[in-house]
């Protein structure tokens, strides 16, 4: 479904990602692991079109998407839930959800997905009129996911969703992400919290200094000596 072929990303002279090749199949739950600065977020931003790639190609459902504007990529069904949530702080919860469905012109479809999203996140239902910035950290993360789902994504990419959440909230978040995956949405999860990523996903890529160093089933990665040492601290 998603294919990155020999992708390079550069900021000025600094190479953020080099020679990255990876594949995500329909229905997969893939995680990308790596330390801070390994190039994980750059990769997601390149897929979303926020960052231009210097070399290589990105294909989605057989079509080249690198070079398209972020809006055009979103219109094809690739939705990113960005790091730090990036909600619209002064807009209401409802308006944030509406913005998620910005590209959807079919009002009935929007209403249906709103209903679905509110069933998945009942906590948002009571807060629809309140401003996004008045929500707690956990609720804000839920809203960020709900806004992403409003776009009716085929591929949903999470960038560090657990950042800044307490262990309890992290657990709730994991449950919600699992539910979304069960609905049939293809997921790419970028996490510094490797334990969480490996626990949720079925396939994992490990990046170091902008390069792919390891990949495999998450069950295998969890047994890997290097991964255990570097990312799980055991």
């Amino acid at each position: 479904m998603l294919e990155l072929k020999n992708v390079w990303i550069r900021y000025g002279k600094n190479v953020a990602v080099r020679k990255l090749t990876l594949t995500v199949n329909k229905g997969d739950f893939v995680t990308i692991l790596g330390a801070n600065g390994a190039g994980k977020s750059s990769t997601l931003n390149a897929i979303s079109g926020l960052v231009k790639i210097k070399r290589g190609e990105i294909h989605f459902k057989g079509q080249k998407i690198n070079g398209l504007k972020p809006g055009a990529i979103a219109a094809r069904g690739i939705i990113q839930i960005p790091e730090g949530r990036k909600l619209f702080p002064l807009m209401s919860v409802m308006e944030n959800l509406e913005m998620g469905a910005y590209l959807c012109k079919d009002t009935k479809r929007v209403r249906d997905s709103l209903e679905k999203v509110l069933t998945l996140f009942p906590v948002l239902k009571e807060k629809l009129g309140g401003k996004a910035r008045e929500l707690s950290g956990g609720q804000q993360q839920m809203l960020a996911i709900a806004r992403g789902l409003m776009a009716i994504p085929e591929l949903l990419m999470f960038d560090e969703p657990s950042l800044g959440l307490s262990p309890l909230l992290r657990q709730q978040l994991a449950e919600k992400i699992k539910e979304v995956s069960r609905e049939g949405v293809t997921i790419v999860l970028v996490e510094q919290n490797a334990r969480l990523g490996l626990m949720l996903a079925t396939y994992g890529y490990v990046m170091e200094n902008g390069q792919l160093v390891l990949q495999g089933k998450t069950s295998d990665l969890m047994q890997d000596e290097g991964v255990r040492k570097a990312y799980l601290g055991v």
Binding site: L50, P70, F88, P89, L103
Partner: peptide, 15 residues
């Protein structure tokens, strides 16, 4: 308003 508050997120959702 969305673009004024959070331009990156606005463009991610198609603005």
């Amino acid at each position: 308003r969305a673009t004024a508050q959070q331009p990156d997120a606005a463009s991610l959702y198609g603005v």
